[in-house]
Amino acid sequence: MADPTVPTSDGTENAKNHFTKAMEEAKAGAQALADEYRGKFNKTTGEWSDEAKTRSDEAKGKANAFAADAKVKATEYANEGKARTSKAIVGLSKAIDENVGLIDEKVGAKYGDYARNASKSMQDAATKLDEKTLDELGEDAREFVRKSPGLAVGMAVAAGFVFGRMFKGK
């Protein structure tokens, strides 16, 4: 009786035949697909058939519509983010204002003045943020990077670190 764990030459030959047959079928399918698409291109004129042109135009139209929708959505999200950021800055400024008296009492009027100045600066920044369009904010960011590339990279690294810590899996 033969050992079932030892392959026989018949089993190997059978597997090779199946593999060869599958490869031939795959090649034939690929060739048929290539022939179908070659039929849509006229080598003499160097142009695609009307069907190919129509499908191409339809695909371009769908891609353009998708891109336009994506741009509208991105703009909506950016405006929403801008509004939320401004609201958060104002909220933080109000929290500082509410605690300025306590700061004056506990650590001194000098530090209370620092807190008032910081709160005022934050309110001014929120107002400027509300008044500017996304294009203006983008141009301001580009100008900041041009003037202070080292600081911009440092801020990006710090923001990445903070976001990494915030979203780090527990």
Rank of each mutant, 00 (worst) to 15 (best):
V153D: 02
K132C: 01
R165W: 09
L129Y: 00
D35W: 09
T133M: 05
E143R: 13
L151P: 00
K53L: 09
V90F: 08
M155T: 13
F144H: 09
G61M: 10
K132G: 01
A52T: 14
F19G: 11
L33K: 15
F167K: 08
A78T: 04
A52W: 15
V72A: 15
A26P: 02
G112W: 01
N17Y: 01
K27W: 01
A156F: 02
A118K: 09
G160K: 06
S49H: 04
A26D: 03
P7H: 04
P149Q: 09
A30Q: 08
L33E: 15
A65R: 13
T45E: 07
P4H: 13
L33M: 15
A115D: 03
S86H: 01
A67E: 08
K168G: 06
A152T: 07
E58T: 12
K16A: 06
R165T: 14
G150T: 13
R38Y: 02
Q31D: 11
S49C: 03
K147S: 07
R55G: 11
F163E: 10
A115E: 10
E136C: 00
S9E: 06
V90W: 03
A156E: 03
R55K: 14
L134C: 00
N17R: 13
R84H: 12
R84E: 15
G150A: 09
A115W: 07
K60N: 13
V145A: 09
R38A: 04
A70I: 12
K73D: 06
F144N: 05
A83T: 13
E25D: 08
V6I: 15
T8Y: 03
L137N: 00
K16R: 14
R55W: 11
F161K: 13
T133V: 08
E13H: 03
